[in-house]
Design a protein around this nucleic acid. Structure first.
Lengths: 110, 110
DNA sequence: TCTAATACCTTGTATCGCAAAGTACCAAAA
DNA sequence: TTTTGGTACTTTGCGATACAAGGTATTAGA
């Protein structure tokens, strides 16, 4: 159980991944590798072995749909889009996220 | 695997508990039950079965020290205080938390 | 036809948070 | 003095998440 700054960050990221995925898909459809790129660019590192099961879970929960699309350079891609249910949940997560920020602020005050 | 708003919040809280505990102890010493009260008041619900192992972990990592203190109404209390190492880590966590907020903001933008 | 690049998926492991149950101390009532 | 209720600390078993590592499959180009 290491104690580096990287592990601290990784620990905090836990539980936010679902939210981040839905947030991205709320803006535009995407496939797994592109999600990883976008997350990495924002500083939320994720690896394939985390993302694929997560997408399957969200799909099974009815939050996502997907369609296959040919690529010009490689195998076909599985493009995910937000379902209506996913959009609802994203709205709830937006609220939950704001509340958590507020909770931490409250703890910091006083 | 339920999908309620409560579970969504619980999911997001994960990984922030360590940070919240250190944040509180950064302001004043506290014992477990008082930590639970303060966390609950701020909206970060925690139960004993979560908190005690967490405190033991942080103690074993050298982030906390504790001392026993008699109580006027009940068994003695284990008051935890932040160690120097804990203070360092809290500073790192403050930075990490700000970065995560920024990462989420980045994902939300565009 | 082999290789490199891209993309998707699975398995095993560690850890976290929770529910539930257990242990111990203290004070006041019976 | 024994019992009861409240407070506080601890442990065990379980479910879920994230990661590391390895695997499968498709395509383009050498």
């Amino acid at each position: 159980m290491e104690n580096t700054i990287e592990n601290i960050r990784a620990q905090m990221r836990k539980g936010l991944l679902d939210y981040c995925i839905l947030s991205i898909l709320g803006k535009h459809e995407a496939y797994a590798s592109s999600l990883i790129e976008e997350l990495k660019a924002a500083g939320m590192i994720v690896v394939e072995g985390t993302l694929y099961p997560l997408l399957i879970r969200q799909k099974n929960q009815g939050l996502l749909d997907y369609r296959w699309e040919e690529s010009t350079q490689g195998p076909p891609r599985k493009y995910y889009v937000l379902s209506d249910k996913g959009r609802e949940q994203l709205a709830q997560m937006d609220a939950a996220w704001q509340e958590i920020i507020e909770s931490v602020n409250t703890l910091k005050r006083v």
